[in-house]
């Protein structure tokens, strides 16, 4: 069993971040909160990597600073974590872009409302009258019909025009 040293605290923190992040991703019902939970989990994993190279009492792996005979920490995990952080940033930026687009199309990031609106979308595209009770919060208007070419999956890798947005988009803002 370990006593509560610095690395013990960091380790518990790292594991805690991963678990909290995983839990947050699983149970939150708002897409942006899911993304934030993911960021937490990624930080936990990054901490774990840095910790894997930590050496008690050693210095940073840069020559020309401090005592040249002192031991240095393992530099490899520091490189790995740099790579992992940059990868994480890229993925998160892309996720934000996706969320912006989703919000622009559906006007919500709440998972339940989103599902209702997507169902209504499909019903409209199929030419079926969407059941009024399907449309989320009472008092809100059903979605305007989405032009067919926006909701029918474009088959191939083909060219596509700019994606049209429902003209009343600002009315649907909560």
């Amino acid at each position: 069993m370990m006593s509560l040293t610095l690395e013990g605290v960091v380790l518990i923190g790292a594991l805690g971040l991963i678990v909290i992040g995983a839990l947050g991703m699983a149970i939150s019902n708002h897409l942006f909160r899911m993304l934030l939970a993911l960021v937490l989990a990624e930080s936990g994993a990054n901490l774990l990597i840095v910790l894997s190279g930590y050496r008690v009492g050693a210095s940073a792996p840069i020559l020309g600073f401090g005592d040249p005979t002192a031991p240095m920490v393992d530099p490899v995990p520091q490189v790995l974590v740099l790579t992992a952080i940059v990868i994480g940033v890229g993925v998160q930026a892309l996720a934000v872009a996706l969320l912006l687009k989703v919000y622009r199309v559906y006007g919500t990031l709440n998972v339940r409302e989103l599902r209702d609106r997507m169902d209504a979308d499909v019903a409209t595209a199929a030419g079926v009258e969407a059941d009024a009770s399907q449309d989320a919060p009472a008092g809100e208007r059903p979605l305007p019909p989405v032009p067919a070419h926006a909701s029918v999956g474009s088959g191939g890798f083909g060219r596509r025009g700019p994606v049209p947005f429902p003209p009343q988009s600002d009315e649907r803002r909560p």
């Binding site: 996706l98 989703v102 997507m118 989405v146 909701s151 999956g153």
Partner: peptide, 8 residues
């Protein structure tokens, strides 16, 4: 494919 469903 650019549809809302695909983005979700």
């Amino acid at each position: 494919s650019g549809t809302g469903r695909a983005q979700v």
